[in-house]
Design a binder for these strands. Structure first.
Length: 588
DNA sequence: GCCGTTTTCGGCCCGACTGTTTTCAGTCG
């Protein structure tokens, strides 16, 4: 990687995107033309999801070829990429105090109200907003009644006590419980969960439920009065929003059966996908909303009948059905047109899994208990990869304890074979990648294992260059079968460490090293955004639950959901292969 | 600010709910 001395740090992709996003917010505050604001916001999204080195493209002033980036954005991004600053952004920022951005995190107030609060009462932070609400000054402003003040105070309190996003397992369990409740109502026929949960996102901000019914008002009333409701945010005749005790927001829409395909598509999103879908419909002279597809004017063609499923909607546009996980406007429309969408992996494709812990390190159960649980799930093999000695906080195994475990696994396998059970434990290790890129066990010991998962568990703060070199050194060790949880993130808790993922993926492709998709809902790592690229370079994925107890094996489902989001097919995932194929693969 | 098989101007996705300005603006998704 090139290094530039005596120069300000070159801005990265996030800086480019965040700057555009911030401009959009500031223009919003100034009451600018909403379409201009949208252009900046759209530009931020394009920069975030651009497949390639956007910073270099900006430096070399080539962004004009990208749809959605025009002359103005191209010039501004060029300035930012080459000088590290953007004059327009700097001038806009100077007009407002930096703390004003936090006001956008309060539900119920938007740019217009924030503008009024700032200009009339000099409110520039959540603290000062709270103050003018409590001392009554806010009621001097037109548009701020008693109820608005109550809402603001309530929302400030709520934000203080609840994070706004939730892990996938929490959201999934809540969604299943609430869907069961809705199905139990006499007035409902179909019950669907839409939103980012259906799209397989790694964390979820809210849950979206759709029910078809002939009595929407009765369904809404019963939902708003349900035992799991902690707070009713809004309660209308067809729409209800509530919070659960843990703060998770749940939105319900009660619709008619004929509206279901349109509503399901609309509320599954993503917003970016829907904008593209609507725009394609619009080119056919049709307007798509959450209820129907209708001609824009009476002259438009109206062969719209018989749309009863989401698949019909896509077929109408001459394309294949796009699974919810792919609906991010990241190339799925083009693939669907060409009939080139992947046939996505399913949970039932899995035949085994690799990265799991036992009581020997920091797990809760024994080899036998873990094996029994794996058999109950219908798996043919279970890889045991306890921690290595450098992870002393996790009771990591030293060489002699690891050799004992290898022997125990051999004994258990002999036992399974003797009684005719087609199941095998695989002897592995989750070996620490030390700070210098070497491994916590010597090659000689690693060669006695069936396989090895190499993971980073410390020194998260190394520079991107050092961290990347460290990880790639491990990938280049021929005894390393796979790289464990490669970004090191703990969702909603710890940021990923600095790592050049393109370089890591290239090294994995070159050496035939597998990359793990850690299915633990706190990790879901490697991130889904990298998988399509890795897959296209021939890198195999291993979906591993990183189970620390028998229940943990069930987290495999979250890994499959995120693998689907990463465009992965059955053939891209190593542990879809059966036992004999795996034994051959590991023997190589 | 962006875009173009209605093209270089005039559009840009759209509906529900809330509270308040009582006919509609602001916010949200």
């Amino acid at each position: 990687m090139e290094t530039i001395h005596n120069m300000p740090d070159s801005p990265d992709r996030d800086t480019l995107a965040d700057t555009l996003e911030e401009i959009a917010t500031l223009l919003d505050l100034k009451g600018e033309n909403p379409f201009k604001i949208r252009a900046y916001r759209n530009g931020a999204e394009i920069v975030r999801s651009f497949d390639g080195d956007i910073v270099t493209e900006a430096k070399e002033n080539r962004l004009g070829e990208i749809k959605g980036i025009g002359k103005a954005l191209q010039e501004k991004l060029h300035e930012l990429a080459t000088t590290g600053e953007m004059t327009f952004h700097k001038e806009l920022r100077a007009e407002f105090p930096p703390t004003i951005f936090e006001l956008f995190e309060i539900q119920g107030i938007g740019p217009k109200k924030i503008q009024a609060l700032y200009q009339k009462l000099n409110v520039d932070s959540i603290a000062s907003l709270k103050e003018v609400c409590v001392n009554g000054k806010v009621s001097e402003l037109s548009g701020f009644g008693k109820k608005t003040v109550e809402n603001i105070l309530e929302n400030i309190a709520f934000r203080e006590s609840n994070a706004d996003r939730f892990h996938r397992h929490i959201a999934t369990h809540a969604a299943e419980m609430i869907a069961d409740f809705l199905k139990s109502l006499a007035e409902t026929s179909n019950v669907e969960v839409a939103g980012s949960l259906r799209r397989g996102k790694e964390t979820v901000g809210d849950l979206d439920f759709l029910v078809t019914t002939k009595s929407p008002e009765a369904v809404c009333d019963q939902f708003a009065a349900a035992p799991f409701v902690s707070r009713v945010i809004a309660h209308g005749k067809t729409k209800v929003s509530i919070n659960l005790d843990n703060g998770l927001q749940c939105d319900l829409r009660a619709i008619s059966a004929t509206e279901l395909p349109f509503a399901l598509s609309y509320f599954t999103g993503s917003k970016e996908h829907n904008v593209e879908l609507r725009s394609r419909m619009r080119k056919k002279g049709l307007s798509l909303n959450e209820y129907a597809l209708t001609p824009i004017d009476s002259d438009s063609p109206a062969e719209i009948s018989d749309i009863t499923t989401e698949a019909d909607l896509y077929r109408f546009l001459g394309m294949d059905y796009i699974p919810p996980e792919l609906r991010e406007n990241r190339g799925e429309f083009e693939a669907a047109e060409e009939g080139a969408l992947p046939r996505l992996i399913e949970l039932t494709d899995l035949r085994g899994t690799f990265h799991n812990h036992t009581r020997a390190s920091d797990g809760a159960h024994t080899l036998e208990e873990m094996a029994d649980a794996a058999m109950d799930l219908g798996l043919q093999y279970l890889g045991i990869a306890d921690h290595s000695k450098a992870s002393f906080q996790a009771n990591g195994l030293d060489g002699s304890r690891l050799r004992q475990q290898i022997d125990q696994i051999a004994e258990l396998n002999a036992h399974y074979e003797s009684i005719g059970i087609d199941f095998r434990l695989l002897a592995g290790s989750e070996v620490d990648i030390l700070r210098d890129g070497s491994l916590d066990f010597p090659d000689e010991l690693l060669s006695e294992l069936d396989y090895c998962v190499a993971s980073v568990h410390n020194a998260f703060t190394l520079s991107e260059k050092d961290q990347t070199e460290r990880v790639i050194a491990a990938i280049r060790n021929p005894h390393v079968t796979m790289l464990g949880h490669s970004t090191g993130r703990l969702l909603l808790k710890r940021e990923p460490y600095a790592l050049d993922h393109d370089a890591v993926i290239n090294a994995a492709a070159e050496t035939g090293t597998v990359i793990e998709l850690n299915a633990n809902p706190w990790r879901l790592d490697m991130d889904w955004r990298h998988w399509k690229k890795a897959r296209d370079k021939g890198v195999l994925c291993a979906i591993n639950p990183d189970a620390h107890n028998v229940k943990g094996l069930k987290m495999l489902r979250f890994g499959v959901e995120v693998a689907r989001k990463g465009w992965l097919r059955k053939q891209d995932v190593l542990n879809t292969r059966n036992l004999s194929e795996i034994q051959k693969f590991l023997a190589k």
